[in-house]
């Protein structure tokens, strides 16, 4: 298959990834069944992961690794990308997911998410952090987006 990322974008992202500080785990959950964008998502994520030694990508089968998929709340949601912090082999789930192919406008979101996680800083204000820390029940945010 041809490369998905044009050379110009590759160079830009490589340069931006020069700012990465700590390792980021990118877990892709793909499915063999009925998944229109799994192959493309895997290829896109591989091309991104190649641009920095701090991005560690792994590919999982959402059906064969059903327990792991359930652990990450992505059952039946292929392709799902989980972006997490990685420290000394330990993956820390930050609850950050992208469901679907992050193309077009969403490619920028993917890059920004990687930068944010690598810096281990959400960029949120102190007041927001304080409030979120005080939550006693789970909070679920689903941000619906399109590539355009």
């Amino acid at each position: 298959m041809d490369k998905l990322l044009p050379q110009e974008i590759v160079e830009q992202v490589r340069q931006v990834f020069g700012q990465l500080q700590h390792p980021v785990a990118a877990l892709l959950f793909a499915s063999q069944q009925n998944c229109d964008y799994c192959a493309e998502t895997q290829q896109l994520l591989s091309e991104v992961a190649e641009l920095s030694p701090l991005i560690e990508m792994s590919v999982h089968d959402i059906e064969a690794e059903a327990d792991l998929a359930a652990h990450y709340n992505v059952t039946g949601k292929a392709p799902a990308i989980i972006l997490a912090a990685k420290d000394g082999g330990q993956i820390t789930d930050l609850g950050i997911r992208f469901l679907g192919l992050p193309s077009g406008h969403e490619f920028g979101t993917l890059v920004q998410d990687i930068l944010m996680i690598s810096g281990r800083d959400s960029g949120l204000t102190a007041a927001t952090r304080e409030y979120l820390k005080s939550l006693e029940k789970p909070l679920h945010l689903q941000v619906f987006v399109t590539p355009t």
Partner: peptide, 25 residues
């Protein structure tokens, strides 16, 4: 625990329909 998902609305159209998504984000 906070779960923050970006959801591609056209690929996950059933989910988008469930919430009657008409504009993004």
């Amino acid at each position: 625990m906070i779960l923050a998902e970006g959801v591609e609305a056209t690929e996950f159209s059933a989910l988008a329909n469930q919430y009657a998504i008409s504009g993004v984000p």
